[in-house]
Design a protein around this nucleic acid. Structure first.
Length: 723
DNA sequence: CGAAAGGCTCTTTTT
DNA sequence: GAGCCTTTCG
């Protein structure tokens, strides 16, 4: 098969330019993945480059897999020697192999978000700082920001410019000590330590530089400064560096992705060639135009000229609903219609939203109507309490110095080791600057605690030590069984709330573990722990199952669906209210919307709800400003904008009305509520089919009520409230 | 030590 | 609403 035959001229240029730095600016649906796969195939087949000399970095493991599959299809054979994966996965591999040079044991564990937060809380405690005053989250973010810019605790102190930064410095310093003492790294460390390793050990770097003759980086717009440095280091010898990205799809600046990397790239490699991929193969003309309308309102961007030979297609629907339930109901009804009337299948449809909390109403509706769906994200599998507990046991066995895993499970199930004892042990550990587990053992041996506590602790160490020795002999799934049985954890879960569901999750984890049973036990455990640390939700997304996909806009990047629903196009949701004060963030919200729309091949439904309950509190949000930027000729539904909403029957295709109370109320009227007593109406908010009224009750205070639901009657009073 | 209750805050996105 | 934390009581 001719690798170049099916490519358009721009794509072909991107594939054939194999020497020197190359920047590919690829619009959505422009065949980016295809170009990458073809480029690698071209390198291997036409240029005779060995796959082992190529590194391809992707944003998710799933993208890496997709790319490899495509490549193998093209070549008609497996390509095992190719290095591919996320920056994090690749760095983890490098550090396992070379970490010794940087003082990192090869059995290091990788801490996730929650683990990090635990370490920070512990640090605050040690430093006598009040977590209310210094939010652990904020500190975590500050530390991550520093690491993303390659700033070590030592470097950080030089830039300290405020009291908060002073605190950050102190926390950062101790945090890092605790991590290295426990032979642990966090996500940012994976990248930063790799860069430092290469910096400090030129001989190691040179080995990798010689190996990787060609380096490719996908989703370049979402790389941060560390990743950029790493990429530059690796490509330092041959300069055959190809980066692919789309500034308009940059949606991870909150994770310190830095769009300036694109500018730096052009500056650092003056001989760079730039290829624009502007022909879209994914979407209809209407969808592409809609997307362009939305993104064009961003001022800090380079205009692009996206075009497509695809058909015009149907118009984009803007659907207004009364509340999120109605919104969800519309989605489900519509999908049922698409399936019965337009030969769509469930897997063709995706519902996207800004925040995970929005999935709830949607899920309820899907369940009620019995429509299969798959939820990406939410409470993620590897974040579930029971899964993390079991992993914590495994981590502790693998690395008893793990200062986060030990406190996590030391008293789960309950074995009489409470907060008091734990604190004592932690103080001990800090005093002698030793890992917690060592402190525990010393405390037992030295007999410094009460006999009862000592005995309990001794029992625990025997348990752990036995598991450790078993871990050298048993296959991984067998080790897992041992843990469940001998720690009592299995029983504890089964007898607890939602026991069966939680047990199922553990069995699911065991299924994953079983895949490692063939390896030697040490390696199996290490590989398994690494795998569970570095999986993303999208990685697990099953394409085969016929079900509707529920997914956040962020996670939808890189995917495509014939039909896309975007829920919650309201001020405060999309754009999110946190972006209101910052034009830069607002532009990112817009890009997020753009990413969502450009996922669609055939049809787009933009949903907007008049009322929305999110996080317990209800609110009435105006329609999203992004809707305003879409040219009227692209939209099918008219009039929504001018408050005279389309009647429900029209939206649903079937009559559906809200019970409109016959009670006529206006501001100043007195009412009696069966529970709250008497009060006065202070505000009326008219909705479609219902009214939200605000009542100041004499006793119960100010309440917001829905007229249709509230047990209210109008009363006559000729006097004012008592003073 | 542990269970239960109450209060509090925080609600974005995730490798 | 939920999850986290603190307080209280047995």
């Amino acid at each position: 098969m001719d690798i170049l035959a099916t490519l358009n001229p721009a794509q072909r240029q991107a594939v054939e330019t194999v020497e020197g730095p190359l920047l590919i600016l690829a619009g959505p649906g422009s065949g980016k993945t295809r170009v990458i796969a073809h480029r690698i195939a071209y390198l291997i087949k036409v240029c005779g480059v060995s796959p082992s000399h190529i590194m391809a970095v992707t944003f998710t493991n799933k993208a890496a897999r997709a790319m490899t599959e495509r490549l193998e299809q093209l070549l008609g054979q497996a390509v095992e020697a190719l290095t591919s994966g996320t920056f994090h996965a690749i760095c983890a591999r490098v550090l396992r192999r070379e970490g010794k040079a940087a003082g990192l044991d090869s059995s290091f564990v990788i801490y996730d978000d929650e683990d990090q937060l635990n370490v920070i809380k512990q640090t605050l405690q040690e430093l006598n700082l009040d977590p209310k005053q210094y939010a652990p989250r904020a500190l975590q973010s500050a530390i991550s920001a520093a690491k993303s810019r390659l700033i070590s605790p030592k470097d950080y102190v030089r830039g300290v410019d405020s009291y908060f930064e002073e605190i950050v410095h102190r926390v950062y310093q101790r945090y890092q000590q605790l991590l290295s003492q426990g032979q642990a790294v966090d996500f940012d460390d994976l990248l930063m330590k790799a860069v430092q390793l290469f910096q400090d050990h030129p001989e190691v770097l040179s080995k990798y530089q010689s190996r990787y003759v060609h380096v490719l980086v996908d989703e370049f717009q979402d790389t941060n400064i560390v990743q950029y440095s790493l990429m530059k280091q690796l490509a330092g010898k041959y300069h055959n560096i190809c980066v692919v990205g789309d500034p308009d799809q940059s949606i991870y600046s909150w994770r310190f992705a830095d769009l300036r990397n694109i500018l730096s790239f052009e500056k650092d490699y003056p001989d760079v060639k730039v290829v624009l991929l502007e022909q879209n193969y994914r979407s209809t003309k209407t969808i592409l135009e809609t997307a362009s309308d939305i993104i064009s309102a961003n001022t800090r961007r380079k205009p692009k000229n996206l075009w497509t030979e695809n058909e015009t297609g149907s118009k984009v629907s803007i659907i207004e609903s009364y509340n999120e339930e109605e919104e969800a109901q519309f989605v489900v009804n519509k999908i049922e219609g698409l399936i019965s009337q337009e030969q769509m299948s469930l897997r063709d449809c995706a519902v996207m939203y800004r925040v995970n909390a929005q999935s709830r109403a949607l899920e309820e509706s899907f369940i009620r109507y019995g429509v299969p769906y798959k939820l990406v994200g939410g409470t993620r599998f590897y974040q579930r309490r029971e899964v993390k507990d079991v992993i914590a046991y495994l981590r502790l066995i693998h690395n008893p110095q793990d200062n986060v895993s030990l406190p996590r499970i030391i008293n789960i199930p309950k074995r009489g080791i409470g907060q008091t004892t734990l604190s004592q042990l932690q103080t001990w550990a800090r005093t002698y600057d030793i890992p917690l587990y060592d402190a525990l053992k010393q405390a037992v041996e030295g007999n410094v605690l009460s006999p009862r506590v000592t005995q309990t602790l001794a029992g625990f160490t025997v348990l752990v030590d036995r598991l450790i020795s078993q871990s050298h002999a048993l296959p991984l799934s067998g080790l897992l069984d041992e843990i469940l049985e001998h720690t009592g954890y299995g029983k504890y879960i089964l007898e607890g709330e939602q026991g069966e569901e939680r047990w199922e999750n553990i069995m699911e984890l065991k299924n994953v573990a079983r895949e490692y049973d063939g390896l030697n036990p040490e390696e199996a455990l290490a590989d398994f722990l690494e795998k569970v640390s570095l999986v993303a939700d999208v990685d697990e997304l099953e394409e085969k199952a016929d079900a509707v996909t529920l997914i956040t806009l962020h996670q939808s990047k890189g995917l495509e669906f014939p039909v896309v629903f975007i829920a919650g196009l309201e001020e405060g949701i999309l754009p999110h209210r946190r972006s209101f004060g910052d034009p830069g963030e607002m532009e990112e919200e817009r890009r997020l919307c753009y990413v969502g729309v450009t996922r669609a091949q055939k049809q787009v439904y933009l949903l907007r709800s008049y009322r929305r309950n999110l996080f317990g509190a209800g609110s009435a949000n105006p329609p999203s400003r992004f809707l305003q930027d879409i040219s009227p000729h692209l939209i099918s539904t008219k009039g929504l904008w001018e408050e005279k909403a389309a009647p429900l029957a029209e939206v649903y295709g079937q009559p559906l009305t809200y019970p409109l109370s016959t009670l006529e109320l206006k501001v100043g009227d007195y009412v009696r509520h069966s529970k709250f007593g008497d009060g006065i109406v202070t505000n009326c908010l008219a909705g479609r089919g219902d009214h939200e009224i605000t009542v100041a009750f004499e006793e119960a205070g100010v309440k917001k009520l829905l007229l249709s639901l509230a047990p209210l009657e109008k009363i006559e009073r000729d006097y004012d409230f008592p003073p």
